[in-house]
C-alpha cells in the first residue's frame, strides 16, 4: 500500500445545492479513520486528477462523508458530470482539524464566505451536537447572491441551536435579509472581545479584511482561527504546493491555524 493510493468508494447520493455547487455523499471506506471537524480528504476522478475538499458532513456520522463541490476546475467539473452510483477515489482524512477541546465553555463566532462554508460545515455539525459544552455559537455567512447560498437545509437545521446570520453582496427581489460583505455582520452581534473565539473561512480577500477588522476591534490573535485553502498534491506535507511563508504546510500543520502562527501574507 503506497501513501498516495486512494480507496475506491461509491457515490451514494448527489444533492444539487446551487447552479454551480453539488454535494456528493460518499460511502465511507472501512479503513477510514474517524475525523475531527475541519479535516479534509483528497478526492480522485481517475483521468482528471485529485483535489482536496473539506469534509462537510457531521463527524458523528460513520456511514458516509459528504463533500460540497463548486464546479470551477478540471476535477470539480469531472465530479459534477458523475452520477449517483458511480465511483471515485478518496484518501485521508488529512489535516489537523479545529481545536474544539480547547474551546470548551467559550463563545464562538464563525465567519464564512462563499464556499468557505464547507470548510466549517463539519464544525457546525459538531457544535450542533455538542452545543451544551460551549457558550453561544454564532455563524455569520456571506454569499454573492441568494442564488449562491448552498446547504440551505443545513443552515435551517443549524439555526435551531446556532445563531445564523446571513448576508448577500447583491440581493434579488426575493431577498429580505442583510446586504453587504460578511464582515458587516460583525456589527450586528455582541461579543466579549477578550474571550470569544473567532473562526474564519472563505476567499483570501474575505480572510484578509475580516482579520484586519477583528484586530481593529481588539480581538487577541490567539483567539482568531483560520481554515486555509491551498493547492495540494500529496496531502501529507511532501509536495510543497501548500507550504506557507511562515513555514507551515497547510495540509499537515493546518488547514486550521491560529492567527499568531501566520504572517499576513499567508492569509491573503
Amino acid at each position: 500500500m503506497i501513501v498516495y493510493q486512494p480507496f475506491i468508494t461509491k457515490i451514494l447520493d448527489i444533492i444539487d445545492e446551487t447552479f454551480e455547487i453539488k454535494t456528493f455523499r460518499l460511502e465511507r471506506p472501512k479503513e477510514f479513520s474517524n475525523f475531527k471537524p475541519g479535516m479534509f480528504v483528497m478526492v480522485s476522478v481517475f483521468g482528471y486528477g485529485e483535489a482536496p475538499f473539506a469534509i462537510a458532513s457531521s463527524p458523528y456520522i460513520t456511514k458516509y462523508i459528504e463533500v460540497s463541490v463548486r464546479r470551477v476546475g478540471d476535477v470539480t467539473s469531472a465530479l459534477h458530470r458523475l452520477e449517483k452510483g458511480s465511483y471515485v477515489g478518496i484518501r485521508g482524512p488529512y489535516g489537523n482539524g479545529f481545536p474544539v477541546e480547547e474551546w470548551k465553555k467559550k463563545d464562538i463566532v464563525i465567519i464564512a464566505g462563499g464556499t468557505g462554508l464547507f470548510g466549517v460545515s463539519s464544525l457546525l455539525w459538531y457544535f450542533y451536537n455538542s452545543y451544551r459544552d460551549y457558550g453561544s455559537i454564532k455563524l455569520l455567512y456571506g454569499a454573492r447572491t441568494p442564488k449562491h447560498i448552498p446547504r440551505k437545509r443545513d443552515l435551517d437545521t443549524w439555526a435551531e441551536r446556532i445563531d445564523v446570520y446571513l448576508t448577500v453582496d447583491k440581493p434579488d427581489e426575493t431577498w429580505r435579509g442583510e446586504v453587504g460583505v460578511v464582515t458587516k455582520l460583525i456589527d450586528k452581534i455582541t461579543f466579549d472581545e477578550k474571550e470569544t473565539i473567532f473562526v474564519l473561512c472563505g476567499p483570501p480577500v474575505m480572510l484578509y479584511y475580516g482579520y484586519l477588522d477583528l484586530l481593529k476591534r481588539g480581538i487577541p490573535k490567539k483567539n482568531i482561527f483560520f481554515s486555509l485553502e491551498r493547492r495540494m498534491q500529496c496531502g501529507i506535507g511532501k509536495c510543497g504546493a501548500c507550504l506557507l511563508d511562515s513555514g507551515y504546510y497547510v495540509c499537515r500543520d493546518g488547514p486550521v491555524f491560529r492567527a499568531d502562527q501566520l504572517q499576513l501574507g499567508d492569509i491573503a
Binding site: Y4, F46, G47, Y48, G49, E50, Q233, C234, K238, C239, G240, A241
Partner: peptide, 10 residues
C-alpha cells in the same frame, strides 16, 4: 528541490 505535482495520464 523536492516539490512535485501529481497528474493523471489517460
Amino acid at each position: 528541490c523536492v516539490c512535485f505535482d501529481i497528474v493523471d495520464h489517460i
